[in-house]
Design a binder for these strands. Structure first.
Lengths: 115, 115
DNA sequence: ATCCATGTTGACGAATAATTCAACGTCGGT
DNA sequence: ACCGACGTTGAATTATTCGTCAACATGGAT
């Protein structure tokens, strides 16, 4: 039941490359890839996951989450913006309908004063 | 600028206990407390922070966040509930008014079907 | 001056996570 | 049968986090 490993293997195969090729592109040892795919070993550190995601052309974040890790971007957000923890504290108790409302709000593109 | 260390020291002093006493109560070495307070050393692991919070009677989560760590409860939430990452992805771009609306929704106690 | 309670510092060690190395098993082509 | 490309496995290594131990510095109370 190695979520991450299975996904990795499937993505790699979609790209028709071998473990050795992927490993070379990513800059890690190919035996490590093998163990990760088989679930023998935990997913690698975030920076490696990101490089894998780039090579395999998927959203790094998606892969990081599959690895059951919290992306560094989230980490920063959580520890720096106090509203976020406020939200997370309640998030587990939100009803589907409340989630809907929140998604509505997220949809609305407001003045992008980001960056 | 050791946020966590300063907070810890101030909390400890409020309780009028020494580093050694706190360390004993928490179950770690007192020299470690010293280094943490002075910022020489990073904050301890989450379980230690929790015990510290209990001894000093503050919300563990508050202390964990000050330590710039993501509480395990959040970690689980993020990696298990796919709506949460969806939210976090957009969270940094939310305007104050959008935050207000979200807080409104959080306020509303709906059927607590949690646990 | 002495004592001792408190805090500080530097070197060291344990535990765990992350990763590599060397060697081997397998299979499809030739 | 043999070869080369591929994947697997176990032991060994490195990196990082997390903490302890021994020794020292300081300041007040007696």
């Amino acid at each position: 039941m190695s979520e991450f490993g299975e996904l990795l293997r499937s993505l790699r195969k979609q790209h028709k490359i071998t473990q050795r090729q992927l490993a070379a592109l990513v800059g890690i040892d190919f035996t490590y890839i093998s163990k990760i795919e088989s679930g023998t070993m935990d997913p690698p550190a975030e920076d490696k996951i990101i490089r894998i995601a780039e090579v395999l052309q998927v959203e790094p974040e998606q892969l990081i989450l599959k690895a059951k890790k919290v992306p560094a971007t989230f980490h920063k957000l959580i520890t720096e913006n106090s509203d976020v923890p406020l939200f997370l504290r309640k998030a587990s108790k939100l009803s589907p309908s409340q989630w809907e409302e929140i998604k509505e709000i997220l949809q609305r593109e407001e003045e992008g004063d980001a960056e």
